[in-house]
């Protein structure tokens, strides 16, 4: 990877962090409602894995902590922010909110709030890729807590049985909401659980984007080769609570300090500095430019965008207008067709 790509990756991670922290501020100002789950601290996983994927070509799906995955796929940041604001210009036209970012134009197939639900949806996307004979794959990002759902076991079984081109990325941040992994899973190392279904798997540091990219490249190559699914686990940590209503009372301050010291942005900045790719000044300038872009482009767009019209409340429930060939009306005595 050349130095301009490495600078871009650092900028992306700084951008994603600032995006999340800025949405935190907007939430405190009550400009964003509902649940807001922030990705701060886990940036290296989505950024690194998707850097190795064919963005816009491969299908990507995840849970409710979805802003960064959508943006890395190519969803415009201003549309993601507008969605958080509930605006009609948002990724999901203001109907989904933080947990349901969609941008099928770049094959980001959504954020889902039912833990574990994306497992089968991802396998279905992969089934479609295989059926059509394309070289696309499906990538499913979920947390460690999702692996205790039935959908994990059912889907891994079918994905393996049918050799579907799906990559399962487990972002193990050690907590299922507020319950630590050793209190919720009989198997601590999540990658071991995939072996029950004959799916190759591995576990890696999720804080070092170079490690993430190396592991993701191997995993993606395996899946794209037609050899079937792969399960890759990254050890990571969310710096904020599960959602905005979470005070993190269940985690020790020592543990938090330990992981903060392994902040993925710090790790990568230090590496680029050591290697002479960037200086402290370069990084400070980059941070300033990101701040400005988020304020003048992303946030301003969200603030200035219109709300959805209340008269459009019923829009998007079913296809509109209904196709009379299949829907009707039923004309008495008439044989259709």
């Amino acid at each position: 990877m050349n130095s301009s790509d490495r600078k871009r990756l650092l900028r992306e991670m700084i951008f994603f962090r600032r995006f999340e922290e800025r949405s935190f501020e907007a939430y405190m100002e009550r400009k964003i409602g509902g649940f807001l789950h922030l990705y701060s601290g886990q940036e290296a996983v989505a950024t690194g894995v998707l850097e190795m994927a064919r963005r816009g070509h491969d299908y990507v799906i995840t849970g409710y902590r979805d802003h960064v995955h959508a943006m890395k796929c190519g969803a415009p940041a201003r549309e993601v922010m507008a969605e958080l604001y509930g605006k009609v210009t948002g990724s999901s036209r203001g109907r989904g909110g933080s947990m349901h970012i969609f941008d099928p134009s770049v094959h980001f197939m959504g954020g889902y709030a039912l833990v574990g639900q994306p497992f089968p949806l991802a396998a279905g996307l992969a089934l479609a890729c295989k059926h059509k004979g394309t070289d696309q794959i499906a990538i499913c990002f979920l947390g460690d807590g999702a692996n205790n759902q039935g959908t994990f076991h059912e889907t891994l079984n079918m994905a393996s049985l049918w050799k579907l081109p799906v990559l399962f990325v487990c972002e193990n941040n050690l907590y299922a909401i507020g319950t630590r992994i050793d209190r919720s899973s009989a198997v601590i190392d999540q990658y071991k659980r995939a072996t029950a279904y004959n799916i190759p798997s591995s576990q890696h540091d999720g804080q070092d984007i170079d490690v993430v990219m190396a592991a993701a490249r191997e995993a993606i190559d395996h899946v794209r080769s037609g050899a079937g699914p792969y399960f890759v686990e990254f050890m990571t940590y969310r710096q904020r609570g599960h959602s905005m209503s979470d005070s993190n009372a269940y985690r020790s301050k020592d543990e938090e300090r330990e992981w903060l010291a392994r902040d993925p942005i710090t790790i990568y900045s230090e590496r680029l500095k050591t290697e002479g790719v960037m200086s402290d000044d370069d990084i400070a300038e980059m941070e300033k430019a990101v701040l400005e872009e988020i304020e003048t482009d992303v946030v301003r767009f969200a603030e200035e965008s219109p709300e959805p019209r209340v008269e459009d409340l019923n829009q998007y429930c079913l296809e509109e207008p209904p196709d009379p060939r299949w829907i009707g009306p039923l004309v008495p005595g008439e044989r259709h067709g």
Binding site: I61, P120, L125, A128, T151, M158
Partner: peptide
């Protein structure tokens, strides 16, 4: 639940 979900995911991709 999961084979229905697989059908749903496949339908989202055409």
């Amino acid at each position: 639940n999961s084979y229905t979900g697989i059908g749903i995911g496949a339908s989202m991709a055409g």
